[in-house]
Nucleic acid binder design. Structure first.
Lengths: 240, 240
DNA sequence: AAATATAAAACAATCGATTGATTAAATCAA
DNA sequence: TTGATTTAATCAATCGATTGTTTTATATTT
């Protein structure tokens, strides 16, 4: 459908302003309303550019949407990819043991949970991604291969080492999926949680509280005692 | 917006056919494509009725959507509500103990997981609900109060008794949310799981396998040994 | 001057909603 | 049970508004 899946025109550096404004505005708008939920005219107005710019730079609405998702994954999701890289580095640096893996798993899930509940870009990723789950477009592959698959694989590896099972066993991957999903869930189903708890928003303190509980349940789920790991982790910075 | 939020006209029993056909077609269509993702003409064609019937019976597209959700929750979600009622009955019939609560929690999550992954109506509920989570409309309240809140409350109660904590404590509710969310997640994020596992669909056998793993993790998460509970549960019908 | 970028206007297509006419059914007087 | 009248339901045709896209013209930069 989209005309130019290659690179964006930008023959000279002067149209970069409009492109950048469109990409920025698109992240917010598409995350909030979805591809079909917002009109090109509103998108252009939000970006402060003319409607024709969408077709001019991206070939159309679909190409624009795809470019926004690509931008979101490649540029804005850096903190998430850094997190993956950090844990992966620590994993290869330490000797392999269930305790180490569990500790890293705990760290990863905790950090990811807070990031996904609070960080603006992560919220956008989660929103678009959950929409793409229900009705996948080309954008699904971009997000999946860009952030989901690496994350999923890393968690699977940590789960495998923590439970002493093969990392490619269906059981291991299903477990990893459940753990990762828990984290995403507090973003996707935040409305329900807030209603149940009488909250209006999820503040920073609340997000950290939730992250601790998630981490604890995750550790128990892979068969290890949370307190042991947590006390040697950051000196027991929390006790829920 | 919608004209008549009260009852549907249906002055005589003759128009019931059209209404029923519209409600049936609407469940599928709205679950698949969302409110904005499908046109009234397609909806009418799918139902085999004239476009004007939508405005005639429901006052408009929004009223139609709301009626579909109401129908879905009130009529089609009966198996889910029956499940809640069954567990609730068994809970009040047995004496209060962490073991009993954990066993019931396991049963509930296991049955719910299979239902939500396989049963057609439950899939529709999960799809519409997850959409309403991201961008709530009036339909959110209908689903929330009809099935989510009762389910959430019951799980909270079971978690509270299993962990010997107050049922209205934030920690308890957050735990319940995570457990319930895990189950929903395998429906919402089934695309990712299937891709990771090289599956095309989630078959009955696979759904039951997943349900077992979820139940095991849930039991561990609330601090009990899965094997003890499962062996006294249904005579060890599964061993993953 | 040539290439690139922006802007306003117009494009065909589709959206949800409505119209007036027609058909089917129910109601009631005889 | 009739036949006349009213009500309910269905239909094709059409409404104005809005959709994504395109065109045409103008401005800016190289």
């Amino acid at each position: 459908m989209a005309k130019n899946l290659e690179s964006i025109p930008r023959k000279s550096g002067r149209g970069g302003k409009a492109i950048a404004r469109l990409l920025d505005a698109g992240v917010d708008a598409f995350a909030r309303y979805g591809l079909e939920g917002i009109a090109t005219r509103q998108l252009a107005k939000a970006a402060g550019v003319n409607v024709a710019a969408i077709a001019y730079y991206f070939g159309g609405k679909e190409g624009y949407y795809l470019a926004v998702v690509r931008h979101l994954v490649q540029e804005r999701a850096k903190p998430v990819r850094d997190l993956i890289e950090r844990i992966r580095g620590e994993l290869s640096a330490s000797r392999e043991s269930p305790e180490t893996s569990a500790r890293l798993l705990l760290q990863l899930l905790q950090d990811l949970a807070v990031t996904i509940m609070l960080k603006h870009d992560a919220v956008a990723i989660a929103s678009i991604f959950s929409r793409e789950q229900l009705r996948p477009t080309d954008a699904f592959d971009v997000i999946y291969e860009g952030v989901i698959q690496p994350m999923h694989q890393l968690v699977s590896q940590l789960v495998a080492q923590a439970t002493r099972k093969p990392p490619d066993a269906p059981e291991t991957i299903i477990r990893a999926h459940a753990l990762l999903g828990q984290v995403f869930l507090f973003r996707i189903a935040g409305t329900t949680l807030c209603r149940r708890l009488g909250w209006k928003h999820i503040t920073k303190a609340r997000a950290e509280h939730i992250a601790n509980i998630i981490a604890e349940m995750a550790c128990r789920a892979v068969g290890l005692d949370f307190r042991q790991i947590d006390s040697e982790n950051t000196g027991g910075r929390d006790e829920t």
